[in-house]
Amino acid sequence: MSELTTTAAPPAGGPAAWMASARRARALAGAELRLLWRNRTAMFTALALPIAMVALLGNIGVDQYTGMGVGTVLVTIMIGFVLLFVVYYNLVTAYVARREELVLKRLRVGEATDAEILAGTALPSLAVAFAQIVLVTAGVAIVVGIEAPVNVLLALLGFVLGVVVFVLLAGASTAFTRNVEMAQVSTLPVLMVCMVLSGMLTPVHELPDWLADVARFLPMTPVIDLTNLGLAGLAPDGTSVDFAESFGAAALPTAVAIGWIVVGAWALRRWFRWEPRG
Rank of each mutant, 00 (worst) to 15 (best):
G71C: 11
G71K: 08
G71M: 08
T72P: 06
V73Q: 05
L74K: 12
V75K: 01
T76N: 11
T76G: 12
I77Q: 14
I77Y: 03
I79E: 06
F81N: 12
F81A: 12
V82G: 00
L83Q: 09
L83Y: 02
L84Y: 03
L84E: 00
L84A: 05
F85V: 00
Y88W: 01
L91I: 08
V92R: 00
T93K: 09
A94K: 10
A94I: 10
Y95N: 07
Y95R: 03
Y95T: 03
A97R: 14
R98S: 15
R98H: 13
R98A: 15
R99S: 03
R99V: 09
R99F: 05
E100N: 15
E100W: 01
E100H: 04
E101V: 07
E101W: 08
L102N: 14
V103W: 07
L104Q: 14
L107S: 04
R108E: 10
E111C: 01
A112T: 02
T113P: 00
D114M: 09
I117F: 06
L118M: 13
G120S: 11
G120W: 09
G120M: 08
G120I: 11
T121A: 14
A122M: 09
A122I: 11
A122E: 09
L123A: 15
L123I: 15
P124G: 07
P124A: 10
S125I: 02
A127H: 07
V128D: 10
A129S: 12
F130N: 02
F130A: 15
Q132G: 08
Q132A: 07
I133F: 02
I133Y: 01
V134W: 05
V136F: 13
T137Y: 04
T137H: 06
A138V: 14
A138N: 03
A141M: 06
A141K: 05
I142R: 09
I142Y: 10
I146H: 00
E147C: 00
E147T: 13
E147D: 14
V152H: 03
L153Q: 05
L153P: 00
L153I: 13
L153M: 09
L154R: 03
L154S: 01
A155Y: 10
A155M: 13
L156T: 13
L157E: 08
V160P: 06
G162M: 10
V163D: 10
V163G: 11
V163Q: 10
V164N: 06
V165P: 09
V165Y: 12
F166C: 12
V167D: 08
L169R: 04
A170I: 03
G171V: 11
G171Q: 09
G171T: 11
A172H: 10
T174M: 00
T174N: 01
F176P: 00
V180C: 01
V180W: 02
V180T: 15
E181L: 11
E181S: 12
A183T: 00
A183V: 00
A183I: 01
A183M: 02
T187E: 04
P189I: 15
M192I: 15
C194M: 14
C194F: 03
M195D: 08
M195Y: 10
M195P: 06
V196K: 04
L197M: 15
L197A: 13
S198R: 04
S198I: 07
S198N: 07
M200H: 03
T202D: 01
P203N: 07
V204K: 12
V204G: 13
V204Y: 10
E206F: 04
L207I: 05
P208L: 05
P208Q: 05
P208T: 05
W210L: 11
